[in-house]
């Protein structure tokens, strides 16, 4: 019992942050599955979603802002794809990667300009932020909501990919880009849908994440983005269940390491994990050659 009382706060924190990483990681892994592109701007889009919420909530009721945040982030994701990635579709893959880095810095600096470099405080969503007590450990409601919501969204996503027409098209495109184009699949549409899903999940992730850690800086997206990317690689980039499992593993391990008193090494652990997995099993946990890459 004492054991549980000691470790429960860390486990809860780990599961919660893991769920938030998972929502970001799915965006990375899906875009990679389809385009073979690591979308470096993804973490910054997550940050922008947070900022949009901050500014929306000052003038609009909360529930309207939440909906608008989801919509604006999706629009932003599609715009980035349309403006920065689509014109480079036939260019070497390195160019599109560099374009992604450019977008990432552009978003960060735009946020710097808009916020004036000061930390913005995330609006309080009472329902998510109210304190609850689980077996003696006091925490926020969002800690419990996150893993549940994450799993529900992932199940819905897997259903979408396995059972719908657009899902089938996505699977086809991830297998062979050119052949599926020849078979009459509208590649641009499939890619647009991928970005819509990725951005939507990043927006949901940002609401959950910033409700828990309420300060937003222009660089707030880079660390969660980086860790989600490691999670995606760990789980096998291109695989959705892999990204989710990877994110939970990273979230929980990091917090347990902090609980052991090795706080200095919690970030180092994440990146050592990345190196080890790339050396031992470069395809990641679930990244088998023949798995559906979406």
């Amino acid at each position: 019992m004492e054991f549980i009382a000691k470790w429960l706060p860390y486990i809860l924190a780990g599961i919660s942050v893991g769920g938030q990483f998972a929502l970001i990681a799915i965006g990375y892994t899906m875009v990679y599955g389809i385009l073979r592109l690591i979308n470096f701007a993804h973490g910054d889009m997550f940050m922008i979603a947070g900022l949009v919420m901050v500014y929306m909530a000052t003038v609009l009721p909360l529930w309207v802002s939440v909906i608008l945040v989801l919509i604006i982030t999706v629009v932003l994701g599609c715009t980035i794809e349309r403006v920065a990635y689509r014109p480079l579709r036939s260019a070497p893959r390195m160019s599109i990667m560099i374009s992604a880095i450019g977008v990432s810095y552009f978003l960060q600096n735009m946020a710097l300009y808009i916020t004036g470099g000061l930390t913005r405080t995330y609006p309080t969503i009472d329902w998510l932020q109210k304190n609850i007590t689980i077996m003696g450990a006091s925490t926020k409601m969002v800690t419990i909501i996150t893993p549940v919501l994450t799993i529900v969204l992932v199940i819905a996503l897997v259903f979408l990919i396995k059972r719908t027409k657009i899902g089938m098209a996505m699977r086809a495109v991830s297998r062979d880009f050119d052949t599926s184009a020849l078979m009459g699949i509208d590649i641009n549409r499939v890619i647009a849908v991928t970005f819509i899903i990725g951005s939507f999940l990043a927006a949901v992730g940002s609401i959950l994440y910033f409700s828990n850690y309420t300060g937003i800086m222009p660089t707030s997206g880079s660390m969660p983005g980086l860790k989600a990317f490691v999670a995606a690689v760990f789980g096998g980039i291109g695989s959705i269940p892999g990204a989710v499992v990877g994110a939970f593993v990273i979230g929980i391990c990091e917090n347990i390491i902090k609980g052991l008193g090795l706080t200095t090494f919690s970030d180092a652990f994440t990146f050592v994990l990345l190196i080890v997995i790339l050396m031992v099993k470069p395809t990641g946990l679930f990244g088998e050659k023949n798995i559906d890459k979406v």
Binding site: V17, M223, E254, K258, S266
Partner: peptide, 20 residues
């Protein structure tokens, strides 16, 4: 004594450590 790395936003475990 404990330290947190640059760009850390998750202070849950530090607070938990202080309590435990």
């Amino acid at each position: 004594e404990e330290q947190f790395p640059n760009q850390n936003a998750d202070f849950t475990s530090y607070v938990a450590n202080a309590k435990s």
